[in-house]
Nucleic acid binder design. Structure first.
Length: 463
RNA sequence: GGCGGCGUGGCCGAGUGGUUAGGCAGGGGCCUGCAAAGCCCCGUACUCCGGUUCGAAUCCGGACGCCGCCUCCA
């Protein structure tokens, strides 16, 4: 049984799927108007880990995540760059997938684009108008938040208090500052679509309702995203579905921020680092490990120091892979399921420990602690020539792979000159010519290798 | 103003009313020709003040500090 913190009720609850053995999950995707930043990286990693784990645990997970290719930000960017909206969206969507591929994130089962669902959005807006929960004013169609009795459920406070604190700029004729645009009346020079209620373009909050219901059906299991989407975006999505009497997400989950120092990292604050930059200078696995090391609902700090820390921890894991020649298992397309793996008694114990942690609100730090402890145990067993060592090490590798973390067992390509130095060093060591041996080692280190002596002589791997 | 979260050893970061988190860094030892990797040992932490309790970092009350949401944002 999966247990997960449900933001709509404020506690960890049993995640009982709509259809037994299946999970229908919707993750709010990015608006593609700029390079992804570190926060997007965490967003992708957290839910990739969850999805992989649930799949590993035997669920048939259907994972849908959209691309918002229709939005004010894209229009602004297009103006600024003298490009079309379509070009901007295509450019940054490509950057998005390339970053996610580098992170080893599995592609969603479906990736709906907002522009492909405009007709369905128009239909939804018509229904909302017909039901009397939407109204038309000069600049568009608005949703009447007062029409939904439990509006504010996701925000955790009633409509009145939200209204009291509203910082939204006042739009003339809006009935409440909380009312949001379903349809923005066409403006000259901006993309627009014909609709019975006048040409224009859909507001942001409508696309996800339409696409999630279209691809996952009513009453789907989980809707997730960053904490900043909890209100108003998710609240507004839910409001639209509820207003039409359509069962929406059964559960809601939100992950925490990436911090820049003491502040939330965000586009509007301008204090962000692009994910693309990080990936160019660090092992992408280090970011995944960093994400795994903290609980998904807590803030994390991604800095040169914390990444370096993670990279050293990663080296310990790769060290295990080297010693036991573990296969590289994860990767974007490698899926594993627990039942298809042969577990030794020690491995099974570890699997159960990891499962207990992850099934309780995705406690990845606890799971990782168990795995790191097992790393030490596997080494100790091997030192004692206990034949249970290998199976335990394999279990560690399999479980890390289940979380999307792949280990590297060896040096990829050893060039000819390095191979020559290795042979020379081994020869020198055989004749106990330590000065020569050390010289060759220095040469190898200078070529970027980490040199280790094993039973078979000099072994190399990349730092 | 309303609502929510957080404050743990040098750093990162979990957690249960009493028993080892884990990683990184650091110290000592073993192994090694020397290293590297690995193993063993080591710090006895929990913002502060009260309270409940045989016993609290863990429960309750209060104080202080920090962060976030109520506008676009993963």
């Amino acid at each position: 049984m999966i247990r997960l913190y449900d933001s709509s009720v404020g506690q960890v609850v049993d995640l009982v799927p709509r259809d037994e053995g299946r999970l229908a999950v919707y993750l709010c995707g990015p608006t593609v108007y700029d390079l992804p930043h570190l926060g997007h990286g965490r967003h992708a990693l957290v839910w990739d880990v969850a999805r992989r784990w649930w799949t590993f645990s035997g669920y048939d997970v259907r994972f849908v995540s959209n691309i918002t290719d229709l939005d004010d930000k894209i229009i602004e960017r297009a103006d600024h760059d003298h490009a079309t909206e379509g070009e901007i969206a295509a450019t940054y969507e490509a950057a998005w997938w390339s970053a996610l591929d580098a992170l080893g994130v599995v592609r969603p089962d479906a990736t709906p684009h907002a522009t492909a669902y405009v007709r369905e959005m128009i239909e939804l807006i018509e229904q909302l108008l017909a039901s009397g929960v939407a109204y038309s004013i000069d600049d568009g169609i608005y949703f009447d938040t007062a029409a939904v009795p439990d509006y504010g459920r996701l925000a955790g406070q009633p409509l009145e208090s939200l209204r009291a604190g509203a910082r939204v700029e006042v739009v003339a004729d809006k009935r409440s500052p909380l009312d949001f645009a379903l349809w923005k009346a066409a403006t000259f020079g901006q993309p627009s679509w014909a609709a019975p209620f006048g040409p224009g373009r859909p507001g942001w909050h409508t696309e996800c309702v339409v696409m999630s219901l279209a691809l996952l059906g009513e009453d789907f299991d989980l809707h997730c995203g960053g904490l900043d989407l909890r209100f108003p975006h998710h609240e507004n999505e839910r409001a639209q579905a509820v207003a039409l009497g359509r069962p929406f997400a059964r559960h809601w989950a939100h992950h925490g921020w990436v911090m820049a120092g003491e502040e939330k990292m965000s586009k509007s604050l301008g204090n962000y680092t692009s994910l693309t930059d990080l990936l160019a200078s660090h092992d992408p696995r280090a970011y995944r490990l960093l994400v795994l090391r903290s609980h998904y609902r807590q803030p994390i700090e991604v800095s040169a120091a914390t990444l370096a820390d993670a990279e050293r921890a990663l080296a310990r894991l790769d060290g295990l892979a080297r010693r036991f020649a573990l296969p590289t298992l994860a990767g974007p397309t490698a899926w594993a399921r627990a039942e298809s793996t042969a577990w030794s008694p020690e491995g099974e114990e570890l699997r159960a420990e990891v499962a207990a942690a992850l099934d309780e609100d995705l406690d990845t730090p606890r799971a990782l602690a168990a795995l790191f402890e097992a790393v030490g145990r596997a080494h100790a067993l091997a030192d004692a020539e206990d034949d249970r060592a290998e199976a335990l090490a394999e279990a560690v590798g399999a479980l890390l792979a289940a979380l999307g973390l792949s280990l590297r067992a060896g040096a990829a390509e050893v060039d000819q000159e390095s191979a020559r130095l290795v042979a020379a060093r081994d020869a020198a060591r055989t004749t106990r010519n330590w000065a020569a041996a050390d010289h060759y080692r220095d040469e190898l280190v200078a070529r970027g290798w980490v040199v280790e002596d094993g039973s078979g002589g000099t072994r190399l791997h990349r730092a």
